[in-house]
């Protein structure tokens, strides 16, 4: 009688452990696992790509570590989303005032064929002076986009031209290069500016 109970409890215990292991597998490695491939960019320190800024300097992700960073993708032949994003960001930077000077703000083109360093220089010149334009060889652009878990695609248009579909979110990193948050396209300024301030605050905490 007693002994049968022990066996029963033992079997139940083994079953429970097996169930927990099973649940654990399902949630971590199995089909229930969150999809990191989906969204979260790598830390800047784990990225590896070589680009050129709009002044002709060689740049890469390591150049961004040490200050909070805002990164977004686009292309200068983009008539709607990109100038809108660049003007939104210019507005956010104006709201931040002097704090804007403590940030890296980088616009990476997904259309290096048309966006040479000169084209980027001319384009970013119309927006907030903190905004830097990065371009480079297609394979390096592709590596950068991949590291941010972003995407882009060339789409032919009527009349022989092409346009680019691309991730329109703005990525915010702290001074250590860890992702703080993302600002979605069309997010109201009253949400965007506090998010940027958070990246700046984490910078202060990291420095002490």
């Amino acid at each position: 009688m007693q002994r049968r109970h022990v066996v029963q409890y033992g079997a139940a215990g083994v079953g429970a452990v097996a169930l927990m292991l099973g649940v654990g597998w399902w949630r971590v490695d199995g089909p229930g696992a969150p999809k990191p491939a989906g969204q979260r960019p790598l830390p800047l320190s784990a990225m590896d790509f070589r680009l050129t800024d709009h002044e002709g300097n060689e740049v890469g992700p390591e150049a961004l570590i040490g200050r909070p960073t805002m990164v977004f993708f686009g292309f200068t032949y983009c008539p709607d989303v990109c100038p809108t994003t660049l003007s939104d960001i210019s507005g956010w930077l104006e709201d931040l005032g002097d704090d804007a000077a403590r940030m890296n703000v980088v616009f990476i083109t997904v259309d290096p064929e048309r966006d040479t360093a000169e084209a980027m220089a001319e384009y970013v010149g119309y927006f907030h002076p903190a905004i830097r334009g990065w371009t480079g060889p297609e394979d390096q652009i592709s590596r950068a986009v991949e590291a941010f878990r972003a995407s882009y695609e060339r789409v032919p248009t009527e009349g022989g031209d092409y346009t680019m579909n691309h991730t329109a979110s703005v990525f915010l990193f702290d001074a250590k290069g860890e992702l703080v948050t993302m600002i979605d396209y069309h997010e109201p300024r009253e949400f965007a500016v506090p998010k940027i301030r958070r990246a700046l605050t984490e910078d202060v905490e990291g420095a002490t």
């Binding site: 989906g38 009527e158 329109a168």
Partner: peptide
């Protein structure tokens, strides 16, 4: 030469695309 009404759409992954 080619004015058209286009629409920009941004999907759940944050990817923007544009089409007539």
């Amino acid at each position: 030469v080619m004015p058209q009404i286009h629409e920009t759409k941004t999907n759940a992954d944050g990817v923007s695309s544009m089409a007539p």
